[in-house]
Every structure is written in structure tokens, then in C-alpha cells.
């Protein structure tokens, strides 16, 4: 049997919520809330000094600052302290836009005034793995350090890879999740809610047995996941079965008896995400199961790889026994990520 993996710490930095408590409040307040205006949700109240101290963050990109802050919150939430040695701790992050605006700014500098005007202290920031690297430097995560950049689903991939690394004994604790900096303006027309200026959502993962042994609070347990590349299916031009989808896959993900199946969605107007949810819905119906859909409030804004992480939080706060987080990318990536309620 596969080792069970627990989620024991959550750290969130985003325009609408930078704590689990605020996240829960915004999540629940949707019915009374006015529609979100504007095209970009700014991170107005993010104060890096609060998380990172008064010095030492000046040369870090905004996305790196969000990630470092979310990591600190996650590690504090897990209460993990020095329970694990540096060589037992790894990090795997997903991002699409950590360096998008950084590259644009640097390129503008090169084209206008020359590369010699790039500050040496900031020159390494062009590389998209620097946020994760800064996490390892600050928090002593030496087992491994991986950055995934698959469109929109890289955060879910990171969590699945983190869990797999724990099962393989590559680490005993993994910091996994997603971060984003400023996204391209072109995306603002693609998704219906506004785009978040940036965000990070990081999670502490441990083997469930170790988490229980050290008396940790468990937010949830990672279930099986499925990753596919289905541009034709998500574009609605071919049937899921043609790409190897079967109802058995659904049973593998949520277990044989679960009814209803709870889907956790972003609700950001992406037709490919909607189509993926419909595919699961149809598979459940034909197996005689009901589907209940839980749509994340659009007050959180669309934030690429971080949005599916917030769907995970949505599940953790739901009190349900099991849920399936659904995410797709405009390029055709599909992710179904199973989650279970905290073990007693």
C-alpha cells in the first residue's frame, strides 16, 4: 500500500486573503459581496518586512517575496520547527509568471541603456528557479529543489511530486505549492474574474504517520491524482475516450463508493476547466453517482498555478470526506487531484 501523505501546514499570500482565517471569511462571504471590479487585483497590504525582516528583501523579486512569506506562514502553521534535518527537507514549486515582468523590465533596460545597467545583485533574478532557491537558502531545504512551469497545473504537479518524493524516501518533509508574479495582460481577456497581481500558496507535506507521531494538526490527506494532456478533448472536438479516459479512472481517483463526488473548481470562466468538470460529471452520472460542484469565489482572482492551490484550501475548509480538485490549462493540460479529510 502506498504511504499516506498529510498536509500539515498552509501559507497563503494573495490579494483577497493572506491567512487561512481571511480565506475562510472571503470564501463564505460571497453571497453578500459586491461583484469584483477592475482587471487586476492588487496585493495592497503585503508588507515584506513583516515576514522577512527589515533588511534583506530589497533585491528579491515580488514573487520571491510572496513565496518566502507563504513558506514562513506554512512552516509556522505546521509547527514543524527543527523536527526534520536540512537534508530531509525538500522543496518543489510550480509557477508560470514568477519572472514574466522581471524579464520584461530587464529586457527594457538592455534595449534602452544596456546590460551594464542591470544591478549585479538582481542579475540572477531572471531565472525562474530563483524563488525556490531562495526558499532553500532561507529555510535550509537541502534534499532537493525543483521548479515546475507547466501551464496552470504546475502547483498541483508540485504537490503530487512532493508526495511521491516522500514515498520514495527522498525527503521526510516537503514544502510544495505555487507562486506567481505579475501575469501577462493578454490573460486578462481570457479569464472572467480579474487577474491577481501575484500570490503564493505553499504547503507542508509529511508522511501521515510522522505527522501524527509529532502531534501535528492535519489539514487534509493527499489522494491519487491524474495528469493528462487533452487539447482536443478540452477543446470539445473529440471524445474523452479517444484520449484514453475511462470511468475506471474516476473510480481510481475518488474510490469506488463515494457518492456524491465533490468537485472543487476555479470558476474563472476558462472553457477548458468547465469542459473537464463536465467530463467528470458525465463519468460519475453514468456510474450512478451524483456530482456536487464547489466553485471558488471569484473574489480571489485568477492566479494561474496558485488558483488550484486555493481550490485545495476550499476543500480543506469544506469539512467533506473527499474531494476532487479540477484544473486545466489553455494549452490543454488537465489535472484531477484527489484529497481526503484529515485523518483522525
Amino acid at each position: 500500500m502506498r504511504d499516506r501523505i498529510a498536509l500539515t501546514g498552509i501559507g497563503l499570500v494573495s490579494p483577497a486573503a493572506s491567512s487561512l482565517e481571511t480565506f475562510a471569511r472571503v470564501r463564505g462571504a460571497e453571497a453578500d459581496a459586491a461583484p469584483v471590479g477592475g482587471r487586476m487585483l492588487p496585493l495592497l497590504d503585503f508588507d515584506p518586512a513583516r515576514y522577512l525582516g527589515e533588511r534583506g528583501f530589497k533585491y528579491l523579486t515580488p514573487a520571491t517575496q510572496y513565496a518566502l512569506a507563504a513558506a514562513r506562514l506554512a512552516l509556522e502553521d505546521a509547527g514543524v520547527g527543527d523536527y526534520y534535518q536540512g537534508e530531509e527537507r525538500g522543496v518543489v514549486l510550480g509557477t508560470n509568471f514568477a519572472v514574466w515582468s522581471v524579464l520584461a523590465d530587464m529586457d527594457a533596460t538592455i534595449l534602452r541603456t544596456g546590460a551594464d545597467q542591470i544591478r549585479p545583485m538582481e542579475a540572477a533574478n531572471f531565472s525562474v528557479n530563483i524563488p525556490a532557491s531562495q526558499l532553500s537558502i532561507r529555510y535550509g531545504l537541502h534534499a532537493f529543489n525543483v521548479t515546475l512551469t507547466t501551464a496552470r497545473i504546475a502547483g498541483l504537479e508540485a504537490v503530487a511530486l512532493g508526495a511521491e518524493c516522500l514515498r520514495r524516501g527522498r525527503a521526510r518533509m516537503v514544502l510544495a505549492g505555487a507562486l506567481e508574479g505579475r501575469a501577462p495582460e493578454a490573460l486578462q481577456g481570457y479569464f472572467s474574474p480579474p487577474i491577481a497581481e501575484g500570490a503564493a500558496c505553499l504547503m507542508v507535506l509529511e508522511p501521515l504517520s510522522a505527522a501524527l507521531e509529532r502531534g501535528a494538526r492535519v489539514h487534509g490527506e493527499i489522494g491519487p491524482s491524474l495528469f493528462r494532456f487533452w487539447p482536443a478533448v478540452l477543446g470539445g472536438v473529440s471524445a474523452p475516450a479517444e484520449s484514453g479516459w475511462s470511468e475506471g479512472m474516476l473510480a481510481d481517483l475518488v474510490g469506488p463508493g463515494l457518492d456524491p463526488v465533490h468537485l472543487f473548481e476555479a470558476g474563472h470562466g476558462c472553457p477548458r476547466c468547465e469542459r473537464l468538470a463536465q467530463i467528470v460529471d458525465a463519468a460519475a452520472s453514468s456510474a450512478g453517482r451524483r456530482v456536487e460542484r464547489h466553485v471558488l469565489s471569484d473574489r480571489f482572482g485568477e492566479c494561474s498555478t496558485v488558483s488550484p492551490m486555493m481550490q485545495v484550501l476550499d476543500f480543506c475548509l469544506s469539512g467533506l470526506d473527499a474531494g476532487l480538485v479540477v484544473a486545466a490549462s489553455p494549452q490543454g493540460h488537465a489535472a484531477l487531484s484527489g484529497w481526503l479529510r484529515a485523518a483522525a
Partner: peptide, 22 residues
């Protein structure tokens, strides 16, 4: 991630499609 996506699109690969930027 567009490089890996285009590979799969071109050749019809439907398995997991991942881009690493380490």
C-alpha cells in the same frame, strides 16, 4: 510550457505533460 505542449499536440501524446525549469 508551450514547448512541451506543442510536442504533445504535434505527435498526439496524451500522457502527463510537464515542463521543468530548474
Amino acid at each position: 510550457s508551450r514547448i512541451a505542449a506543442r510536442l504533445a499536440e504535434t505527435y498526439g501524446f496524451t500522457g502527463a505533460n510537464t515542463t521543468l525549469s530548474t
